[in-house]
């Protein structure tokens, strides 16, 4: 009989359950959201950022990180969660790659969850007035629904596009 340690047993259970994808879970307002861990480059404590012209940027601000200026999507503003102020637990998730790196200002980072990609369902069309491309889908975890954000959708968000178009 072969003794299996806890880590080996977990790995075998994971293999038996099929491939999973890890998501970083975070809170905006009272709801939990997720973003693929693979797309997250860094998690930062919020530092000073620069406001952008409010006539063109309602939800984005700018942050200088490692000598590079990034657009930061204030998720409370994007999701219309009031009040639109960062909490003490707030963090900036730096996501994306290549030319389109984006910061997401969230209220709190909650942890990491492994998700079976086959269990990610579509977000109902009526559920939001936001561009559906911002969402990869919905998944159930511990009887709760978690909206998963799309890295590509965030990178193509119009204010991010305007930022990188060099208009600021």
């Amino acid at each position: 009989m072969q003794f299996l340690g806890p880590a080996t047993r977990r790995n075998r259970q994971k293999l038996a359950a099929g491939p999973t994808e890890s998501f970083l879970l975070f809170r905006v307002g009272e709801e939990t959201y997720g973003a693929t861990l693979q797309g997250i480059r860094e998690v930062l404590e919020p530092t000073e950022w620069t406001a952008l012209p409010p006539d063109r940027f309602q939800v984005c601000a700018a942050l200088t990180h490692r000598g590079r200026r990034l657009p930061v999507i204030r998720m409370r503003a994007l999701f219309d969660v009031m009040p639109d102020q960062a909490a003490g637990t707030a963090r900036v998730l730096v996501v994306g790659g290549g030319e389109r790196i984006v910061g997401l200002l969230v209220d709190e980072v909650l942890g990491v969850a492994d998700v079976d990609p086959g269990r990610i369902g579509p977000l109902p069309a009526m559920a939001t007035l936001l561009d559906p491309a911002l969402f990869r889908g919905v998944v159930v975890r511990q009887d709760r629904l978690i909206l998963l954000l799309s890295e590509r959708g965030l990178a193509e968000f119009d204010e991010v596009g305007a930022f990188y178009a060099g208009s600021v």
């Binding site: 905006v28 307002g29 009272e30 709801e31 994007l78 999701f79 219309d80 969660v81 369902g121 977000l123 109902p124 009526m126 559920a127 939001t128 007035l129 936001l130 919905v138 159930v140 009887d143 709760r144 629904l145 909206l147």
Partner: peptide
């Protein structure tokens, strides 16, 4: 579960039978 920027008459989403 409340969804962001939903229409005023939409309360959010629920999970029922997958």
């Amino acid at each position: 579960t409340r969804t962001p920027r939903r229409p005023p008459f939409v309360e959010g989403i629920i999970h029922h039978k997958a």
